[in-house]
């Protein structure tokens, strides 16, 4: 059987909220190392990879690997029933048909029990190479969300260009064009707003704003986001889960988006 307790149900709620609009059905693979989900959107343009290590759970027991086929919008509906400071326990029998979800308030005076029907999902799995990227930009996740939203006003494709001086987001469409440049800063008093750039060579790639918009739904998870790019490969937009700022969390939520290329 599988049984795991997370002290903050809100963390799981934010994770599922962040992916449910991009991916409808997904397999959560549970093993002794933790919980993982990998899924593509319906157009196979982007990929979500969620890793929750056992470290972030108060209690974690997994006797045999289990695959939990989950309808994410339905899971999100149940998670919305949790209170702000509730803990959540997930339970599933080997080959069970349901996932039990139990919320408990801090003082344990309120216990809510739900069951979510599991599904058989035939999903293709991709091997993500563990590669070094040419450019890694760390910035405020709220700022990234705002830029993507502002770019969407003007068009559907955004160019992201990075040099040592800064990172430039550009868009053009029927009504005109626009760009926003963020310079590298190391403002000590506003650590969360700092923009840090590590790069080998300048890089510029084009991406569909629709998908970047989906990714920024993860902003409530972490005040910082890491954007990694290399020429002609998918961009990675990564958020720590259950960690603080730039420090490594016990989990991560990474989004991969294939670039648009000139024909």
């Amino acid at each position: 059987m599988f049984e795991a307790t997370l002290q903050k149900a809100s963390t799981l709620k934010k994770v599922i909220e962040a992916i449910k609009d991009l991916v409808t059905d997904g397999n959560i693979e549970v093993s002794e190392t933790g919980m993982n989900l990998q899924a593509m959107d319906s157009s196979h343009v982007s990929l979500v990879s969620l890793v929750l290590h056992t470290d972030m759970f108060e209690h974690f027991r997994c006797d045999r690997n289990v695959t939990l086929g989950i309808n994410l919008p339905n899971f999100a509906k149940i998670l919305k029933c949790s209170g702000n400071d509730d803990s959540v326990t997930l339970k599933a029998q080997d080959d069970g048909e349901n996932l039990a979800i139990v919320f408990e308030s801090e003082g344990q005076e309120r216990v809510s029990e739900f069951e979510l029907k599991l599904m058989d999902i035939d999903a293709e799995s991709l091997g993500i190479p563990d590669q070094d990227y040419n450019t890694n930009v760390k910035m405020s996740s709220a700022e990234f969300q705002r830029i993507v939203r502002d770019m969407t006003v003007l068009g559907d494709t955004c160019s992201i260009g990075c040099t040592k001086e800064g990172v430039k987001f550009s868009v053009s469409g029927d009504l005109g064009q626009g760009n926003i440049t963020l310079r590298q800063t190391n403002s000590v008093d506003k650590e969360e707003e700092a923009v840090t750039i590590e790069m080998d060579e300048p890089v510029e790639l084009n991406f569909a704003l629709r998908y970047l918009g989906f990714f920024t739904k993860a902003s409530p998870l972490c005040p910082r986001v890491t954007i990694s790019m290399s020429p002609d490969v998918p961009i990675v937009v990564a958020y720590n889960v259950g960690g603080e700022k730039d420090t490594e969390g016990a989990g991560s939520l990474s989004f991969y988006l294939a670039p648009k290329i000139d024909e």
């Binding site: 343009v45 293709e124 670039p259 024909e263």
Partner: peptide, 14 residues
């Protein structure tokens, strides 16, 4: 014009 590439063309199927 720009063409949207698929994510599966960058990563190998497992």
């Amino acid at each position: 014009t720009r063409k949207q590439t698929k994510i599966s063309s960058f990563f190998d199927k497992e």
